[in-house]
């Protein structure tokens, strides 16, 4: 990702200092490939909740989106920079005194606006951090290997530009905002809580063309409501059930937490059970 470099000025001093390597082989840094084909690592800033960053040789510095920086308690100086005491990557790599640019790259606005990546992206890790390591990336593995290098990379230079408005093209800034707007229209929003399958504690099976409760834990939502092993499942809410695949589809479609009504046949008597699903597995 080519990040905003035109107003990239004032990167002076505070070179990141890194801990010596644990092993000569380097650190394993877990990563994922986002749906947008970005390489994403998770890192915590001064103990913050994990944030998602793009590994980006096209960015001159470490960029953190303004909102994420605020949540992590980072306050930029008047030039837009902040110093992170500890940057802790997923895995074992930790870096101390890392300088970051607090600014939301326009590309992230677009990607997050449309929830394209399948996760919210909080920033870009670029040259000023990457150059400190030899970095091995293999899309067939779920971790990279970062080996600290014994050198101090030169500070990246900006090429001028004044103040906070960049000269690289208002059109790109516009594009980012435009895509963000599009996301708003489609009802998708970045960073909202995910829709998680609700836990009931039920496992179903099919016998003699009947959908039966194969197992149910006593203390699970279904168990506490009174559902028992061997009960025949007849209705899910208002829907009559025909076969196990349909019943399992219905089970998968309930979120957590949500209300559920099961109609059950037990020894020729019909019972109705109402309960709430929970977060669990």
């Amino acid at each position: 990702m080519i990040a905003s470099i035109a107003f990239f000025v004032g990167f002076t001093g505070f070179l990141p200092q890194f801990l010596p390597p644990e092993k000569a082989a380097g650190f394993q840094v877990p990563y994922r490939i986002a749906k947008t084909q970005h390489i994403i690592v998770k890192a915590r800033i001064n103990g913050s909740a994990p944030l998602n960053f793009v590994i980006d040789t096209g960015a001159p510095a470490f960029f953190i989106a303004e909102e994420a920086a605020k949540k992590a308690g980072l306050k930029p100086d008047e030039k837009g920079w902040a110093l992170i005491d500890e940057l802790r990557f997923e895995g074992t790599l930790r870096a101390q005194k890392v300088k970051a640019r607090i600014e939301t790259p326009f590309q992230l606005k677009g990607i997050n606006g449309l929830t394209l990546a399948g996760m919210e992206l909080h920033g870009l890790i670029g040259y000023s951090v990457l150059a400190k390591y030899e970095i091995h990336i293999d899309a067939k593995k779920d971790y990279m290997t970062w080996t600290p290098l014994d050198w101090i990379p030169p500070d990246p230079q900006g090429f001028g530009g004044s103040g906070k408005k960049n000269s690289q093209g208002a059109s790109l800034e516009f594009l980012g905002s435009f895509m963000q707007g599009l996301g708003g229209l489609s009802g998708a929003k970045a960073g909202q809580p995910s829709n998680i399958r609700g836990f009931t504690g039920l496992v179903l099976e099919e016998k003699n063309e009947k959908v039966l409760v194969a197992s149910v834990f006593l203390e699970s939502p279904a168990g506490l409501a009174g559902v028992q092993i061997g009960d025949e499942l007849i209705k899910f809410g208002d829907t009559d059930l025909h076969g196990l695949p349909e019943a399992n589809l219905k089970l998968r479609a309930i979120a957590a937490p949500d209300s559920i009504e099961l109609t059950i046949k037990r020894k020729n008597t019909i019972h109705k059970f109402n309960f709430k699903t929970v977060f669990g597995l």
Binding site: T57, Y127, A131, E134, H136, I137, D138, L149, P153
Partner: peptide, 8 residues
């Protein structure tokens, strides 16, 4: 490719 990037 499995790539290894070395800025130094």
């Amino acid at each position: 490719f499995a790539i290894t990037i070395n800025y130094q």
